[in-house]
C-alpha cells in the first residue's frame, strides 16, 4: 500500500488507517474490536449484520492517528457482494479464528484467498486466535500449529481473549503492531503546515524510517 492517507495529509486532518477484521461467524471479531476501541468486553454481543464500524485515536511519535476498524459479518452470504465494497482503501487486515473451534482455523485459507483477491497481499496482516480463555488447554488449537500457518503467510500471530482483563494489553498490541507497521510504511509525512489562511502550503518529505525502530513506542 503506497498511500495510507488518501486525502491531502495534514491540514487539521488526522492520519487515518483503515483496518478490516475478517473471520468466521462467532469467532469474536466484534468483541475484539469493541475491546480495543471501548476498552471493555462487550457483554451482549450480537451477530453482526453487514459491516460495523469502530474507531479509536492513538498516538504514535506525538502524532494522532485514527484507526478505523471495519468489523465484518462472518456469514458467507454477506461477503460475496456486500462486504466487497469495504475492501476499498483498506490498509491492513486482521484475520480472527476461535482457538476452541478448529473449523474456524481451517477457514483461514479461504480468508487469505479473499484478501489476495482484493489485492491486499502486500498489506500488513495479523492472525488472531481469540477466546484463549475458553475450553481446556487440550481442547484449544496448538500454538505451534497456528504459528506454522502464520509463518507461511508471513504474518504475526496473536493468541488472546477479548473477555479477559489480563489479556487487554495483548488486544492492544494487535492493533498497535499494525498501526506502527503502517506508520513506518507511509511514504510521505507532513513536516509542517503553514497557517490555514495562507495558501495551503504543505512541506512533504520522504520518510526515512525503517520497520526496525517502529516498535520503540507502544503508546496507548
Amino acid at each position: 500500500m503506497s498511500e495510507p492517507n488518501e486525502s491531502v495529509p495534514g491540514l487539521k486532518q488526522k492520519k487515518v488507517f483503515k483496518i478490516i477484521v475478517l473471520g468466521d461467524s462467532g469467532v469474536g471479531k466484534t468483541c475484539l474490536t469493541y475491546r480495543f476501541c471501548e476498552g471493555k468486553f462487550l457483554d451482549k454481543s450480537e451477530a453482526t449484520i453487514g459491516v460495523d464500524f469502530r474507531e479509536r485515536t492513538i498516538r504514535i511519535r506525538n502524532e494522532d492517528i485514527k484507526l478505523q476498524l471495519w468489523d465484518t459479518a462472518g456469514q458467507e452470504r454477506f461477503r460475496k457482494s456486500m462486504v466487497q465494497h469495504y475492501y476499498r482503501n483498506v490498509h491492513a487486515v486482521v484475520i480472527v479464528y476461535d482457538v476452541t473451534k478448529p473449523e474456524t482455523f481451517h477457514s483461514i485459507a479461504n480468508w487469505m484467498q479473499e484478501v489476495e483477491s482484493h489485492g491486499l497481499t502486500g498489506a500488513p496482516r495479523v492472525l488472531v486466535g481469540n477466546k484463549c480463555d475458553c475450553g481446556t488447554p487440550e481442547s484449544r488449537l496448538a500454538t505451534t500449529y497456528a504459528q506454522r500457518l502464520a509463518d507461511k503467510h508471513g504474518m504475526p500471530l496473536f493468541e488472546t481473549s477479548a473477555l479477559l482483563e489480563s489479556e487487554c494489553d495483548n488486544v492492544e498490541s494487535i492493533f498497535m503492531t499494525l498501526a506502527h507497521k503502517l506508520y513506518s510504511k507511509q511514504p510521505l509525512r507532513v513536516l509542517s503546515v503553514e497557517g490555514e489562511n495562507k495558501p495551503k502550503l504543505v512541506t512533504l518529505s520522504r520518510q526515512k524510517r525503517s520497520n526496525a525502530d517502529s516498535g520503540s513506542c507502544l503508546c496507548s
Binding site: 462467532g26 454481543s45 451477530a47
Partner: peptide, 12 residues
Amino acid sequence: NQVVLDVNRSLK
C-alpha cells in the same frame, strides 16, 4: 450451528 450461534447471541 449458524442458527444456534446467532440465537445464543440474541440476549439483547
